[in-house]
Simulated scan of single mutants.
Amino acid sequence: MPEVTSSVPARAVSMRELQGILGVSRSTLSGLVAAGFVTPTRGPRNAWRFTFQDAVLLRTALQLRAARITPRKIIAALSRLRKALPDELPLTGIRVSAVGNDVAVRSGPSQWDAVTGQLLLDFEVAEIKGDVVFLDTAPARRSGERQAEEWYELGEVLRASDVTGAEQAYRKAIELSPRPFYAAYVDLGVLLCELEARCDDALEIFDEALIHFSSDAVLHFNRAIALEDLGRFEDAERSYQRSLEIDPTHADAHHNLAILLERRGDPQGLVRHLNAYRRLTT
């Protein structure tokens, strides 16, 4: 299958946005900046502004630190890695790992020491202990399931800052997974449904997912939302009803269906499902 060739454009993000992307506290990020792992610019009111490249480097620093790599080696590795990262970061790119007490970077078929720049032999790859960054060239010999997981993780990171990149990553996860990738289907469909102009695309994703997961209440619920946003109210009602047939305790499905039935002139349906929603949430 062809590789995705689009790239993620550079974009400055705030400290708060970066906290959400990396899942760490403000004090942790401030400490990493103070340690010299990245040098963000200053924006309005002197607030720090981070690039996506900074996010990659900080994610790498956090996970190398968790792998007990010394700060000196982390800073040296990031200094070299920073030069290897383009301003516009490709979705397929670089994998950084801890190899014993050293830091290895894989780009394409090659693996090199992040501090010295020396190429490492293939047999050393087996000694890698844990992936530490979400960008990966996905070598052919690695399992499709692992590749798909990494693309899914990339989508989770990108959805807070770049919708296009997240969509591409989720689609790549679905494409590469040897089994239907439930979470990637759900998150891609929700992502597209949040964009008013992409509800048709979201519906296609949910319909495709339901081929594999026909008895999943969440998928039928999300499909109903997409149909409702498209103005297909009768179809939306059927999808909400199907969701509730599968899971009668799905409170949000009761709530949404109650509102939809009120719009469709069914006051009895409104009361019935609104009462069910209240019972489940009180």
Rank of each mutant, 00 (worst) to 15 (best):
A209W: 04
L203W: 02
E208P: 06
L203R: 04
I205F: 05
I174L: 12
S215I: 13
D201Q: 11
A166L: 11
I205Q: 02
L188E: 04
N222P: 08
D207V: 13
S215E: 15
F181L: 06
L176E: 00
E167D: 15
A217G: 08
A166N: 07
E194N: 10
L188Y: 04
A197M: 08
T164F: 12
K172L: 13
F221A: 04
A202M: 07
E204P: 03
R198E: 15
E204S: 08
A209C: 07
A173Q: 02
E175V: 11
I174C: 06
I211D: 10
L203Y: 02
P178N: 04
A209D: 01
E175C: 05
A173Y: 00
D200H: 11
C199D: 05
Y185A: 04
L195E: 14
F221H: 07
G189H: 02
V190L: 10
D216I: 03
L176V: 03
L192T: 03
V218I: 10
R198H: 13
G189R: 00
D187V: 05
G165R: 01
K172Q: 14
F213L: 11
K172G: 06
L210P: 06
E196H: 08
S214R: 13
A197P: 01
I211E: 14
E196A: 10
R171D: 04
P180F: 09
Y170K: 06
P180D: 09
D216N: 09
C193Q: 13
V218L: 12
L219E: 03
E208A: 14
G189N: 03
A184R: 02
I205W: 01
A202G: 05
Y182C: 01
D207W: 11
S214L: 13
L188C: 09
Y185G: 01
H212P: 09
I211C: 10
I205N: 01
T164Y: 10
T164H: 12
D216M: 02
D216S: 06
I174M: 09
F206Q: 01
D187Y: 07
R179N: 09
Y185S: 03
R179Y: 10
C193G: 13
S177D: 03
E204F: 04
E167R: 15
E196K: 12
L176Y: 01
S215Y: 11
S214I: 14
R179L: 10
N222K: 12
E204D: 12
P180E: 12
H212R: 14
V186S: 10
E167L: 15
D207Y: 13
D187T: 09
Y182S: 02
F213A: 09
E167C: 15
S214H: 14
D207C: 15
S215R: 13
P180S: 09
Y182V: 02
D200I: 11
Y182H: 07
